[in-house]
């Protein structure tokens, strides 16, 4: 279809740039990281062994108070959620800043 007959919202889809919602990205990544630590920790707890999860235990070097136990999995979830949220929000912010700069540079409007 010729451009002059394109509805406004169609032009946005065809020519526009995707903008990330930093809060949502942060929340999603935080939840994912938190759940990964929570599940992997509890998986090792259920499997058992002596000692339980010596390699995962190394996370305690960064996450103070973390252990491969059920309580540790909750502490790990909180840490993972915090780090994931921060990282996701940062990715969103950096992406939007650079994309916005490039759009302005191209003389396009958001």
């Amino acid at each position: 279809m010729k451009g002059e007959f394109q509805p406004k919202n169609e032009k946005v889809i065809v020519h526009g740039v995707l903008w990330l919602n930093s809060k949502f990205i942060g929340f999603a990544l935080g939840l994912t990281c938190g759940l990964i630590i929570f599940i992997t920790t509890n998986w090792l707890v259920i499997k058992g062994g002596d000692p339980v999860g010596p390699n995962l235990q190394l996370l305690s070097q960064y996450f103070i108070g973390y252990r491969v136990s059920f309580l540790g999995s909750i502490i790990g979830f909180i840490y993972g959620f915090a780090v994931g949220t921060l990282s996701g929000a940062l990715i969103g912010w950096i992406y939007n800043s650079i994309a916005g700069f490039r759009v302005r540079l191209d003389g396009k409007s958001r």
Binding site: N9, V12, I13, G16, V17, L18, W19, V83, S87, L90, I91, G92, W93, I94, Y95, N96, S97, I98, A99, R102
Partner: peptide, 28 residues
């Protein structure tokens, strides 16, 4: 629904996304 569609189907800025992910990974 229009806003959601516009948000979901617009082109992702490859360079911006690559820099953002690279920077956050590097920082980590």
């Amino acid at each position: 629904s229009t806003e959601i569609l516009e948000t979901a189907f617009c082109r992702m800025d490859k360079l911006a996304f690559a820099v953002a992910v690279g920077a956050v990974s590097g920082l980590t």
